[in-house]
Every structure is written in C-alpha cells, then in structure tokens.
Amino acid sequence: MEIFVLAFFVLGYLVLAGADIGVGMALPYLGRSASERREVIAAIAPFFLGNEVWLVAAAGVLAGLFPELEGELLSGNYTMVVALLLAWVTRDAGLWLRGRVPGARWQAFWDGATVAGSWGLALSWGGLLSHVLLDIQGPLAALPALVVAALFAAHGMTFAALRLRGVLRERAAVLSGGAGEARTYALTSAAFLTVGVLAGLRLPLEPGTSGPLLAPVVLALIPLLVAAQGWVWWTFRHRVTGPSYL
C-alpha cells in the first residue's frame, strides 16, 4: 500500500511535470521571438504549478511513509539533489518573473533562466535516475543522464504539439511525424513510467511504522486530489489561443 502511494506521486510527477520541463528545454527551438515564446509558455502556464506539486507530495510521502529512505536517498545524493533544487528554483523564477517588467532584455534573461533551469532539472533527474537505476556516478553518468534529458525534451515537445496551434504546433510535432500527437505523447509517457518503475524496483522500499495509520488516509485523499487536478485539465482543455498571464 505504501509503495503504491509513493509510486503514484513519483510517476505522476514524471509524466505531468516531465512535459512542462521538456517544454522549457525546447523553448528556444519552439519560440523564435519573444511573443512566440510567451505563447509557448502559455501551453504549460496553467499546469506547471499543479504539476510540480506532485514532487512536493512525493517528498511528503517519502517523509511520512519511508523516512529512512528519505534520508538515505537525499543525503546520499546530496550534490545532485542540491543541483536539482537550484535548477527547479531557477526554472520557476524564470517563468514567474519574465512578464513582470516590460522590456526585451528582462524577458530574454528570464526566458534564459527558464531554459537553463529546465535543462538543469532534466539533467539532475538523469543523474539521479542513472545512479539509482544503473549505479553509475561521476563523468560516465553523463551518458545516461543525457538520454533521460532527451526523454524530457521529447515528452515536452509532444505535449506542446497537443497544446499549440499553427506554426508553433508544426515545430513541436516534428518528432511525431505522421503518427498523431496523442499517440506520441502516450509513448513518451510510457517511457517515463517504465524508467520510473525500474528505478523504484532498485530502491530499498522498506516502509516505516506510520504506514498502517497514514497510508489509508492518503489513499482516501487521492480521488479528491485527482479531481482537483482534473478540474484544471478540464478548464484548460483547449489549445492555446494567445498569451497567458505569464
């Protein structure tokens, strides 16, 4: 039961936030001008807050249900996790701040932060997953990390193809070929699920002692949380028609 709860939030994070991180990575390719970039960001804007919170929840589940693993995993990968957090903060700052001041240089700077932060996030995830999955650390880990980062970028592109219109959609759909946008998105999602499950199987998933009390509460909450997210997805189910608040 505890393992299901943890898997639910980690896998949910990879599939959902993987898409907005990937869009951030592909931002210079998808959006060639400031106004195009703003429209590309509108594809993820209503979702990224609700997506990144899956990782916050996963960390909470780790703290409550697997406290020993939490300490081992985070302090044992200290530098990588710190890099991941710094990249996360940089990416979010870029998204929030780009529109706060009019001016090409200000926006270009914070778009740069979004791109750098998204790459940093994807590469840190790559490093962490290759450590857990393949037990590789050091310079050699760059190779699997790049493969994971490429998966993030591809996933982001397929999501952008689903959300954008016109020339932006065509650019994003370059990976899909004629295969259909939804099917390509399903494929990259499945790749994320596979990587996540394989990594999970390599972890010492020994639950702590609060599971019998906490896990049923969390299980009961999950339908509510999914419904809340479902409302967001329903509200923003249409393709992007112009710039958003960000």
Partner: peptide, 27 residues
C-alpha cells in the same frame, strides 16, 4: 520521521497539493 514525517505528509497532501492546484486555477 515515523512520527513527525506523518505531519509533513499530511501538509503536502491535504494542504499544499490542493493549494497549488487551485492557485493555478485562480490565476
């Protein structure tokens, strides 16, 4: 962690998850 981690887990799930999701909806 088996004790105070439970409170942290409740915070992320009961509170912050919903807060963040709905804030996106509000903005």
């Amino acid at each position: 962690g088996d004790v105070f981690g439970a409170a942290l887990a409740m915070e992320t799930l009961v509170a912050f998850f919903v807060e963040s999701t709905f804030l996106g909806l509000w903005i």
